[in-house]
């Protein structure tokens, strides 16, 4: 008995505890604690609490009354939620259409070995350094119908009357927003594609050259198929990123004109923090969370996280 006890104590002593073993101990528990507490208190639990809030009639201060599914019923019936929902889908669609193909071509361009392409790649990155707020403010000036750069250019080229109100026209405002978002994020997608292209084995290109394939043929039969995981990754990122896109829209149109750009995230903010209707805002927040989780689950189902990881490691 005694001998056994000594042995048990002696073994951890050999490596002064813990490290050669892979067992849990007090110091490891302490190491985990800060991250776990922060994540639980300010991310995980709040997300669950949002579900509870969606059943409250509450302005954020004072007393709250539990109204069950009342908020859900009125939100689903009002049409406002559906309007925001379809706008969000439309924004996701436009962002994908604008960002993915262009990001792909630019990524292939910057992946080239030529020296000037590396310089271009470094310059392409610059829009990513600005905050969405700064980008939004800048573009609202560029697109302004008074003294705006864009109308100035079009007038010089003889296109249009030179007074197009890009962000004030409800028919095109959402598309214009998608263009601004894409302007900032295409370089990011290009970066992902660039690293994807660089991982394609050189031997495939050498084989294609021996077979006499031209650059276009090589692109469509080697580069594009080899990039399928990168395409999945960028698609997921664009869709999940656009789903909750808020900053730039808030600054540029704040959901307007009317409610032409009032996507879910803007709608949620207005309900909760402008109308002080915590219940209605939480309904939209839950819709956003479910939507986001569904997107992630679908992604996992189609790709598997390991594949995304292995793409990541090559970076």
């Amino acid at each position: 008995m005694d001998e056994l006890g000594l042995l048990d104590r002696a073994r951890p002593d050999l490596g002064d505890g813990c490290l050669v073993t892979d067992r849990m101990n007090l110091s490891r528990l302490l190491m985990m604690l800060p991250a776990v507490i922060f994540f639980a208190a300010f991310a995980l639990i709040p997300m669950c609490v949002a579900v509870y809030y969606s059943g409250l009639n509450w302005s954020g201060v004072g007393s709250a009354t539990w109204v069950g599914l009342q908020n859900w019923k009125s939100m689903l019936a009002s049409g406002e939620l559906w309007h925001s929902f379809w706008l969000t889908i439309a924004l996701m669609f436009w962002c994908w259409v604008l960002q993915n193909p262009l990001g792909l071509v630019i990524g292939v361009f910057t992946a080239g070995a030529q020296r000037h392409r590396a310089v271009f790649g470094a310059l392409y990155f610059i829009p990513l350094l600005f905050s969405s707020v700064a980008i939004g403010v800048t573009w609202s000036y560029i697109l302004s119908p008074t003294f705006g750069l864009m109308d100035n250019l079009l007038k010089a080229l003889g296109i249009g009357n030179g007074f197009e109100n890009w962000l004030g026209n409800p028919h095109i405002a959402l598309f214009v927003i998608a263009c601004i978002i894409s302007w900032q994020y295409i370089p990011f997608n290009a970066l992902l594609y660039q690293s994807g292209v660089r991982q394609i084995p050189r031997s495939l290109y050498e084989a294609a050259m021996i077979d006499g394939a031209g650059p276009l043929r090589t692109f469509f039969s080697i580069t594009l198929p080899q990039l399928k995981y990168t395409i999945t990754t960028t698609t997921v990122l664009i869709l999940t990123g656009t789903l909750t896109y808020f900053d730039l829209i808030y600054v540029v149109t704040n959901g307007g004109p009317g409610d032409a750009t009032q996507v879910l995230a803007i709608d949620m903010y207005k309900q909760a923090f402008t109308n002080l209707n915590i219940g209605a805002g939480s309904v939209i927040a839950v819709v956003l969370a479910v939507f986001g989780l569904l997107l992630s689950i679908i992604t996992l189902k189609f790709t598997g996280f390991n594949k995304m990881e292995s793409q990541m490691e090559g970076a």
């Binding site: 994540f39 208190a41 300010f42 991310a43 995980l44 639990i45 709040p46 997300m47 609490v49 949002a50 809030y53 954020g60 999940t240 789903l243 909750t244 808020f246 879910l264 995230a265 949620m268 903010y269 909760a272 923090f273 915590i278 805002g281 939480s282 927040a285 839950v286 956003l288 969370a289 986001g292 989780l293 997107l295 992630s296």
Partner: peptide
């Protein structure tokens, strides 16, 4: 947690 959008938790975070 990677899939949790900030917007989904911002109201309870504000209250907290």
């Amino acid at each position: 947690g990677l899939a949790i959008p900030v917007q989904a938790a911002i109201i309870p975070v504000y209250i907290l």
